[in-house]
């Protein structure tokens, strides 16, 4: 009894085999296309988180305000942006609200929607951070004669930021992934480029697989940077 050997084609090297696959070629010959897309994604994320941090701080302070009007506005704001899908918010702002005020392109619409959304999450992070600071700190600052905002600025916020950094890095990672939703308004970020490449090549597994890998590299890098920052703060 003899064993029939496999045909010779199966003996080709891995590299030769991969090159015979169309999807592999689609992905690797378009590496710069993905790179540009990931840069747009990063831009969207960095701008939105930065704007979200400023706005989120304001909303957090509003929510803790003694004035009912301010705190109610903040509560409604946070409820709305956390209680509705970002995908819907993106479309609402791009097609519904922003055209009333300006002629905004998809990128600007995407940044605005993501910033407003992120601000709601940041506000809750900041509020938790402020409330984690011991009550005695506020009392000590006030007993020296500082007013509420001086105490906040010089005593409370400088202590709250350490508590706030880990969840803030988490928010950055979440938003980085959520920016994929602005592909629905044709912002040329990573996911939208994946869509376009897929619709011309039909190499679903290769294209979306590659998109996943690029997202993973970005989120992992941010998370590692976050760990580094946390370690530095811990030793400070």
């Amino acid at each position: 009894m003899s064993i029939t050997p496999y045909p010779m084609t199966f003996g080709a090297t891995l590299w030769e085999k991969l090159n015979s696959i169309n999807g592999f070629n689609v992905v690797f010959s378009n590496w710069d296309y993905f790179l540009e897309g990931s840069l747009v994604t990063l831009q969207l994320t960095v701008i939105s988180v930065s704007a979200g941090m400023v706005l989120g701080l304001i909303i957090a302070l509003m929510k803790m305000s003694r004035w009912r009007l301010l705190s109610s506005v903040a509560v409604i704001y946070i409820d709305f942006f956390r209680g509705t899908p970002l995908l819907v918010q993106v479309m609402l702002f791009h097609f519904g609200i922003l055209p009333i005020f300006m002629d905004s392109g998809p990128f600007l619409s995407g940044v605005i929607a993501c910033s407003l959304n992120s601000a709601a999450y940041v506000a809750e992070i900041v509020r938790a951070g402020i409330q984690a600071v011991d009550r005695g700190q506020m009392e000590a600052a006030r007993s020296l004669g500082m007013n509420g905002s001086q105490a906040m600025r010089y005593v409370i916020l400088p202590q709250a930021y350490k508590v706030v950094i880990p969840p803030m890095i988490n928010e950055f990672v979440m938003l980085l992934k959520d920016t994929s939703l602005v592909s629905v308004i044709a912002v040329m970020e990573l996911t939208h480029r994946g869509k376009l490449l897929y619709s011309t090549t039909y190499e679903a597994a290769w294209v979306w697989g590659a998109v996943c890998v690029v997202y993973y590299i970005m989120t992992k890098t941010v998370a590692m940077m976050g760990d580094w920052i946390e370690r530095r703060l811990a030793t400070e």
Partner: peptide
């Protein structure tokens, strides 16, 4: 001036 039981120094 006020001095507290738990000091309440600014740790930062």
């Amino acid at each position: 001036g006020m001095v507290f039981q738990l000091f309440n120094l600014f740790p930062h």
